[in-house]
Design a protein around this nucleic acid. Sequence first.
DNA 1: CGTTTACTCTAATGATTATACGAATATATC
DNA 2: GATATATTCGTATAATCATTAGAGTAAACG
Lengths: 231, 231
Amino acid sequence: MKSRLFKDLLYEQVARIGKALSSPKRLELLELLAQGEKSVDVLATELSADIKLISAHLKALKEARLVVSRRDGKYMMYQLTGNDVAGLWVTLRQVAEAHLIELRVALDHMVADPSNLAAVSREVLLEQAQRGDVWVIDVRPRSEYETAHLPFARSIPVGEIERRLAELPLDKEIVAYCRGPFCLLSDEAVSLLSARGYRVHKILDGVSEWQAAGLPVEQLLSASEEIHAGA
Amino acid sequence: MKSRLFKDLLYEQVARIGKALSSPKRLELLELLAQGEKSVDVLATELSADIKLISAHLKALKEARLVVSRRDGKYMMYQLTGNDVAGLWVTLRQVAEAHLIELRVALDHMVADPSNLAAVSREVLLEQAQRGDVWVIDVRPRSEYETAHLPFARSIPVGEIERRLAELPLDKEIVAYCRGPFCLLSDEAVSLLSARGYRVHKILDGVSEWQAAGLPVEQLLSASEEIHAGA
DNA sequence: CGTTTACTCTAATGATTATACGAATATATC
DNA sequence: GATATATTCGTATAATCATTAGAGTAAACG
């Protein structure tokens, strides 16, 4: 059968994407890039890894057409080629969570105090945020907030929390979120704020998870464009 | 930071799933298993590959908890650990189609005559099938049909088409589907039937694509259970 | 009940490829 | 030119893939 050769070709192409997803470092890069465009430099710092190594991984992601790069002065900026890539990361992580006990165990240990988790559903939270019953705060760096954030969320990066306490209400419930279930920024925010008497919880969702669940997010128009790079 | 070690652990777990998706053979196995439980033997035949090789790949998929096996007499039967795994495959393929030009080009060449493609939307097709305006035929092996099939679809495996021509209407439009965009069974059915004067088209969707689009499928109850294998 | 047959898995090998890291090279700003 | 950022090259280590040979299981047969 010559259809075999043809099929091999098809699956091989899809496997290019699979290969790109086969390294922990590259997955972490994808998650970071799902928060917005970033330089090699920033990515390397976030991963506490060598720039050369990150550059090599970004090259691999680029060859799989999951990211594109552009030069901005002396920085090289990388971004995802589309929101579907962020969705793929979310799907992959969800399948991993569903089937790998090791991962679930690790995640359970991660959220130090599970009572810190806000228990309401996404839809209910959205409603409460709209009415102003809860304050949703985005504790990621401001640039990530600007790229896209949950509806009704306010940007208060973890680093700024202590000097912006006055902005936060003591009588309302505060819900913090960050980059997703693997990100610890919201945990930091919870421990900072709860120590000062604020009623604060976290949710595991990031913007990508929220979006993957079919809920609306506020985002820059340019960020919603799909990018189709040439061969 | 000790959170680095922790994060490495998390992403490494997800990368286990990524690694499982990094081989063309394993992807093809996943797609076949998305059609239902199958023996190593059958899988090897479908891939025109050595049983030992397929067995090794299945082992890799098993270690990533994407499949489970059970013994049935002298056969080892493998199945996906959940519908989410089929969904992951669909998502992965869709991202590949969206970003890899090579894949799109190959796919365009594959469907010999693009006029063979039914042009209506899934929802419209569903409606037409319900009213009986079109005949939807499932040309996969019967066992795959029995595991799950599109609503209102009739099972007519390609191998049986020629001796079951009498069952098919000459005055109605026939729509054939098989395992998905990479599967050629529906093409075979189209060329067989159109040569005999039937009004026949194919769609690219398989059951997994249909389901991933949020549309209903008819399936065996047991097939909807999630399987959580032990460590 | 022992032997044959069919099916599958494990172990071992070599070819290929991926990963990480040091040294050197490109590119742009100051 | 000097500096900061990023990539490429060369290399050592490690992982993966396909194949071969051999072992383990269960059904079928005499």
